[in-house]
Amino acid sequence: MEIVQVKNLTKKYPAFELSDVSFSLSSGRITGFVGRNGAGKTTTIKSMLNMVHPDRGEISFFGKPVSENEQEIKKRTGYSTGTVSWYPRKKISMIVDTVKRFYDTWNDETCRKYFSLFGIDDRKTPLELSEGMKVKLNLALALSHRAEVLILDEPTSGLDPFSRNELLDVFSLLKQEGTAVFFSTHIVSDLEKCADDIIYISKGKIFAALPKEEFVCRYSREGESLEDTILRLEGGAFHA
């Protein structure tokens, strides 16, 4: 079931343009949003979160436009960024205690379950967590209010291969529970490991938005890995 739709998203900056970005996300699927640094991934995600105002385009979650249903949509959606940490010197227990007040659907037991699964100690501060643990903390917070869609901006950036693998396993677990996972990355091997769908963005334009198998069938040459395919395509786009 399609739960997020992005149509003709356009945003112009003096030196960059996000142009007619369109795609959709479905429940119970993992979608990897891949593109090199500066391709427009974060601008797209920020537009989806109503943090950046697009010049044109429509974004809807659960069939409702974001601009008019921001609060309701945020209650059903979880966000995380891989590189930013909130309140680095506050106890995690205090952050949790604050966040839970905003959600009617918050479940303490679920929160404890994910903290235990991810090995998060709520007596620590975010400053004492590794980059991977920070991502897991954000994930645990999003999942404790039963987010139906997870939007993650470069969650695997800066993680060691072991932590990346662990995180991708978590995505697979969430998929089984029916959660739609949308994560941006410039690490193509992340897609190979767990993505069902691939959205490939280059220079502010969507090059392809397809199920992974179809993407491979359409663009990969024989014996070529997904990483090689995207590098080749990016090379073509770069020299175009």
Partner: peptide, 9 residues
């Protein structure tokens, strides 16, 4: 940014 992520206007 943290506040904007919360379900508030």
């Amino acid at each position: 940014v943290f506040s904007v992520f919360l379900p508030v206007a």
